[in-house]
Design a protein around this nucleic acid. Structure first.
Lengths: 208, 208
DNA sequence: GTCTATACAAAGATAGAC
DNA sequence: GTCTATCTTTGTATAGAC
C-alpha cells in the first residue's frame, strides 16, 4: 500500500491532474490543449490521465462545469435575495464579480468562447429563465421600468462589468495599458458602475 | 491553357480557399480548424491549400488580418473626424457597429479570443495609442470630462455595443432568446445606447 | 495549375508489465 | 496505481505525375 494521504506536501494524483488541466485548458482553450501538456504540468504519466478520466473530453467537461459555475453561479443568490433593494443587488454583483475576476481575469473570455464553440457541451447546464428572468431582481426592475426589457439591463450590467476583461488582451498587446493601470481602473469602476447603471435606468426611450 | 476567368459561375481557386477558410476559421477557431475541412468546403484538393498559402498558419494570418481590420478599422475614421460633435461620433459608432455585426455576429468573440490565445500574432497590427488615445474624440471627451479616463469611456461604449453579441450564445443555448427577439433588441439598442452613454457622462464620481 | 499518393509528426488512447 | 511501449487517428506538408 503506497497510497499516502498527505494533504500538505502532495495531493492525490487525481487532484494534481485536475489542477493542471484547469490551468492549461483555461490558458489555451480546449482545442489547442494537448493532454501531454497537462500530464507534464501535473508531473504524472500520460496514461494516468486516461486512467482517471476516460478522455480529454470528459476531463474538459468537468473543468468547464466548474468554470461556468464560477462565472454564472455567483450571481444567482444575489439576484434572488428577496430582502435586498435593487441598488444593493447591483452593488453586490459589481463587487463580487470584480473581486473574483481580479484573481482570474481570463475567465469570461474562456467560458464565453468555449460555449460558443461547443454549445452542445453546455446545453442546459443552467436554467437562465429560472435563474435570471424570473428572479427577484427582474421583478424589482419591472416595477421601476416596466417598459424596459430585462435583457437590456442584464446585457448592460454584465457588459460594463465583464467587457474590460474581455477587451484587455487587445490593449495590453498593442502597448498601452499595463496591469497596474488596469487594476486602478477596475477599482474606479467598482464605484462607478452602480452610478452609471442608475443613470441609465432613468433614461426613457424617445419612441415609447 | 485551362485557366478561365469566369467571374460569374466559379471563382479562382485561391479565392475559393480563402472563402472557405474564412468560414471554418471563424466558426471553429484556429486550433480546432483542420485544413482538410477547409479543402473540403472549398471543393479543392488539400494539396492546393499548401500550394497557394504556405501553411495553415499563413492562411490564418491572412484571414485574421481581415477580421481585425473589420472589427477595429471601422472606428478609426469616425474617431478622427474633426468635423463632427461627440454626439454624432457616438451615434455613428453605434450605427455602423450594429449594422456590421448583424451580418457577422460572431466576429467579436472570434477576434477577441484569438487575440488572447495568440497575442504575438496580433502584435502591433494597430496602433491603439495613435488611433484611439490621441484621437479627436478623446480630445472632445477631455473637454467635457477631464477627470474621466478615456479607457472608461471606450470600455463602456464598446461594452454596450459588443457585449450582447459576445453573450448571445449563452442565452441562445440555454433556451430563451431566439434570433428574432435578439434582432429586435439590437434595434432598440441602436437608439438607446447613445442616450445611455450621454447619461453616464453626466455622472460624477463621488470621491473626486 | 491541379491531382494522387504518401511522408511525417503530433496527439489521443490502450495493453500489459510491474 | 503507475509506468513503458505502442497502436490508431488525425492533421500538416510535400513529391511527383498529369
Amino acid at each position: 500500500m503506497k497510497k499516502k494521504n498527505n494533504p500538505i506536501k502532495d495531493f492525490s494524483t487525481e487532484e494534481k491532474i485536475k489542477t493542471a488541466a484547469r490551468e492549461v485548458f483555461t490558458q489555451k482553450g480546449y482545442a489547442a490543449t494537448r493532454t501531454r501538456d497537462i500530464a507534464e504540468k501535473a508531473n504524472i504519466n500520460l496514461a494516468l490521465l486516461n486512467y482517471y478520466f476516460r478522455s480529454k473530453e470528459k476531463l474538459f467537461e468537468m473543468i468547464m462545469m466548474e468554470k461556468v459555475q464560477k462565472l454564472f453561479g455567483i450571481i444567482a443568490p444575489i439576484l434572488n435575495d428577496s430582502q435586498t433593494s435593487l441598488e444593493i443587488k447591483i452593488q453586490r454583483m459589481v463587487d463580487q464579480y470584480l473581486e473574483m475576476l481580479t484573481g482570474q481575469p481570463d475567465l469570461p473570455i474562456f467560458v464565453l468562447s468555449e460555449i460558443r464553440n461547443h454549445p452542445e457541451r453546455f446545453a442546459s447546464q443552467f436554467n437562465i429563465k429560472k435563474m435570471v428572468l424570473e428572479s427577484h431582481l427582474v421583478k424589482q426592475l419591472q416595477e421601476v421600468r416596466p417598459d424596459l426589457s430585462p435583457f437590456h439591463f442584464i446585457f448592460n450590467l454584465l457588459g460594463l462589468i465583464l467587457f474590460p476583461f474581455i477587451g484587455r488582451p487587445v490593449l495590453e498587446t498593442t502597448g498601452k495599458l499595463n496591469p497596474r493601470v488596469f487594476g486602478v481602473m477596475i477599482e474606479e469602476r467598482r464605484q462607478m458602475i452602480p452610478l452609471w447603471i442608475k443613470a441609465m435606468l432613468e433614461v426613457k426611450s424617445q419612441a415609447k
